[in-house]
Amino acid sequence: MPQLDTSTFASQLFWLVICFLALYFILSYIALPKISKVLETREQTIEAKINKASLYREQAEDLLNEYEAILAKAREDAHLHYKSSASAISADVTLKQKDIIDKLSNRLHLAEQTLYRSRVEAGKEMGSIAEEIANLILDKLTGRSPRKKGA
């Protein structure tokens, strides 16, 4: 078995140590720093992009919230506006209604007064007319002039 030939051991160990050390120094000073730098750069780039994306998402969410707030405020404003104008209109209507009713009832009252006065006057005239008629009838029947009132 060639593996047990001790005369080759020194040479194999010698070259093993040489090669191992050479590889160790090549890797630790040339190859590995390059790879780790690239990996680090990539990690940083990805992280930066993810941060940027999340920033944009936050901004978008803020905008959405702002938009919703504006919308809600506009809705409320409209509602208030509607309420105030509705109450103003109804107040106006009530006022005008009252005005008209007042005017109407005034006129009614006046008319009633006129009617009453006429009736009273008519009643008074009726008395004097009846007296005249009675005097006339008496004059015709008796030929005597009627007794003057208070006479």
Binding site: T8, F14, W15, A22, L23, A31
Partner: peptide, 30 residues
């Protein structure tokens, strides 16, 4: 002491060179 460069040494050196080429070459145009 016999430290002759043998076929074993040759392939050790090859392994070192190949590893270097593999790692450095892959990162040439990183």
């Amino acid at each position: 002491i016999d430290i002759s460069f043998t076929n074993s040494s040759l392939f050790m050196v090859s392994a070192v060179l190949l590893t270097t080429v593999f790692l450095v070459g892959g990162m040439m145009r990183s």
